[in-house]
Design a protein around this nucleic acid. Sequence first.
DNA 1: CCAAAACTGATTGCCTTCGATCATTTCCTG
DNA 2: CAGGAAATGATCGAAGGCAATCAGTTTTGG
Lengths: 263, 263
Amino acid sequence: MRVPEHVIRKRRDEVASLLSQFRYLPVSELCRRLNISEATARRDLAALERERRITRTYGGALSDYNANFPSFRQRQATNAAAKRQIGRAARDLLKPGQTCYLDGGTTPFAVAEALRENPVSPLTVVTCNIPCAELLAPVEALQVYLLGGRFLARQSVLLGDTARRSVGHWHIDVAFLGAEGVTAEGFWNSQEEIIRLQRAAARRATRVVLCADATKLGQRTPFFVLPWSDAVHLLSDASPAQLRAAAVTLPRDHFLRAPEKTP
Amino acid sequence: MRVPEHVIRKRRDEVASLLSQFRYLPVSELCRRLNISEATARRDLAALERERRITRTYGGALSDYNANFPSFRQRQATNAAAKRQIGRAARDLLKPGQTCYLDGGTTPFAVAEALRENPVSPLTVVTCNIPCAELLAPVEALQVYLLGGRFLARQSVLLGDTARRSVGHWHIDVAFLGAEGVTAEGFWNSQEEIIRLQRAAARRATRVVLCADATKLGQRTPFFVLPWSDAVHLLSDASPAQLRAAAVTLPRDHFLRAPEKTP
DNA sequence: CCAAAACTGATTGCCTTCGATCATTTCCTG
DNA sequence: CAGGAAATGATCGAAGGCAATCAGTTTTGG
């Protein structure tokens, strides 16, 4: 029989919540726990999958990669290949014994993925980016430090005064930052809190490498972060032609090209 | 045909690694990626499951709850019911507007679980415990702050000078600590770093609640943390009889009994 | 207040996965 | 170096999962 809309919503939320609690549940378990038929369970799973809230598997379903960090996962999917390229190139800028900083966002996360795949040893990693810290913590060659601060679930990142103060204690050899926009002047973001932390990290860093895929070129988002300088370079998969097309002209040697991956 | 032992080990590590990368993979995917037959894949999965490194599902397998935090998951399983009880009782000690501290370990994690289930609103949570922070970050009613510090993957906890300094900035109403041993004198742990952080948190706290299930009673592990006092109480599922049996006699009113759960 | 729309659970037939077994090949121990 | 032990891939029957369909009931929207 038909059932009011709020009941459906509530039941589907319940399914999602059970999944995020147990990570994986077979369809039969869901039916048992919610007292619903398999048909309904499957329909709910299909709906939740359409909404990208879960991942179905044969026989059950999983809470999505990181149900806690929904936006992170989404952004991760966009332009993944370029980010991987950039991540590897970023890693290759590091030398053993150095200290690097990984900013929030998915492009710095790609640097972490590259480091996990092929670590620079030894290396100290400082970050405000929780997924990065988790990814790298088990890697023997690395010492991972997390900044303190307020935990923003949406961004899965630490922010606030505490984080800013916390980064002030470090000496950083290379800071890998992300941005939403890249222009000839420098790079841009849209949240003040993030920018303040980025600036604090940049102040502590000998070298700043702005990691941004080609789609960020020419975007000018609300707040300006930093201009290009001898210490601030751009690392991107963009071609020189793309740079010109977006009117992003950089001082000599301030552009590091992420080479095509060779599989 | 039979194959040398190191090949098997390597292949199984590969399976585990693929799973921890993708979180879930269907058997068919594993076969394709590793060029092995389904039979072998299933045997590997069975072996990895026996070693508790993964979880099998119908049609595939998952990396274990937290492949990054193996020991955490293990400890979580022990005495789960008592921990849940303690967690709920701990939550009920909190009042809206307060600031609480959650220590590392699985018993404080149970407090986080209780808070997620039924949050005190509003509440500020300060923790060195990454799983706690992740669990609670999405809860609207809560502000979650993570201490800074070195990320220890084994314990999934933040430690070191930075963490200790970081906790020094807080005023904490109630600090929920964990322990490996509980005696009439006070409570005990076995890692100096952890103890230093616990003491630092206790110094900043108006009230310290030591959360320990009955199995910890009478254990005396290498290092002493703190004695019972007007500010330091024990919260446990143990019965008064169990306390006596373990020769844990506490000053009056220093023992909070976690009541049986009523489902 | 009525009719159309929509949700549920049962059933059906098809497809996938599973574990067991077996012959074969290779390791490794004594 | 010889023989037992062990791992592999193929095959097969059984078990379980899936989507589609259908009838029954309640909601929703006009």
